[in-house]
């Protein structure tokens, strides 16, 4: 290892606070990027199982009629 002790690795002769701050931020963002979508998917599936019956979508109907005389009167 480049540093001879744990303390030296933490201190990094003065620059440690900045380096470890960046490391912490990176860990937070990387974990967030991987965990958040997975968690929202799991929560969505859980919600889905609760209201299982999908509300029936009204089936659209189209009728085409040939009418030879339009005016009803």
């Amino acid at each position: 290892m480049y540093f001879d002790s744990l303390q030296a690795a933490l201190a990094m002769d003065g620059h440690g606070v900045y380096v470890w701050a960046v490391v912490a931020a990176s860990v937070v963002i990387c974990v967030g990027l991987l965990v958040l979508p997975a968690r929202s998917a799991r929560r969505f599936i859980a919600e889905l199982r609760v209201d299982d019956a999908p509300e029936p979508r009204a089936a659209p109907s189209v009728r085409i009629e040939e009418v030879n005389n339009a005016s009803g009167s």
Partner: peptide
């Protein structure tokens, strides 16, 4: 005049 009627239902 002859007419085609397209009746949209649901």
């Amino acid at each position: 005049i002859p007419l085609r009627r397209l009746v949209l239902g649901g």
